[in-house]
Amino acid sequence: MSAKIIDFASAATAASDGLVIEGIHTTYDRVDVLTGVSLRVLPGQITCILGANGAGKSTLIRSILGLTPAYRGRIRFNGEDITRLPTHRIVSRGIACIPEGRKVFAKLSVEENLRAGAYLEPSAREIAHRLEHVYAVFPRLAERAGQLAGTMSGGEQAMVSIGRGMMAAPQLLIIDEPSLGLSPLYVKENFAVIERLHSFGSTVLLVEQNVHQTLAIAHRGYVLAQGHVVAEGSARELADNPRVKEAYFG
């Protein structure tokens, strides 16, 4: 009975909750990769996750998306428990992801890749509208609309992957190392695009290796090391936090 009442109370504030992760544990083959991670992504903000290679950042994202579900703990999105929903249901709640390693569909054309991003949008007009928008941000993609994505250059594939995420017009956009392997010029452009996406109204959860540029655009951040959060705070606090440096080099 009392549990019901508490549920009611949390439901009342639910709609503006954003993403709330409470003490999740995740494992591959019995080795725990995440050990009790808790974090929050507030609506309207850019939240970043920092951490060295192998810290568990991508695994955290896989858990949010239900690709490698957490076996303990809870993930809520706008108040709804999504911990064990199948991936396509989680995505249908308004979450999209630009995955690590771009993961473009190599044998689909650029435009088909983008359309795949808007798979859950039923209105053809809305899809056309979003396509136009993506092409405005990345004119290169408009020029190459019919080319197979697998034959695009690495930087161009990053654009396809980001554009595909934009096509979902998600409430929450999760981005995993979009700049990996890109030249500094592309990296700079990527950050500009992420800021722009955010200004169009998406909440962003960003995993990045470029600590300074990331903290420059993020509102809040978490530092992950060996599967748990070792520091958190506003971007400004993190910029001065010695733990950040430690997490990468210590």
Partner: peptide, 14 residues
């Protein structure tokens, strides 16, 4: 076709 090429990423597309 998306499922045929990469079922995991297809799932992430919803």
């Amino acid at each position: 076709r998306a499922v045929a090429q990469d079922s995991e990423t297809a799932r992430v597309m919803g």
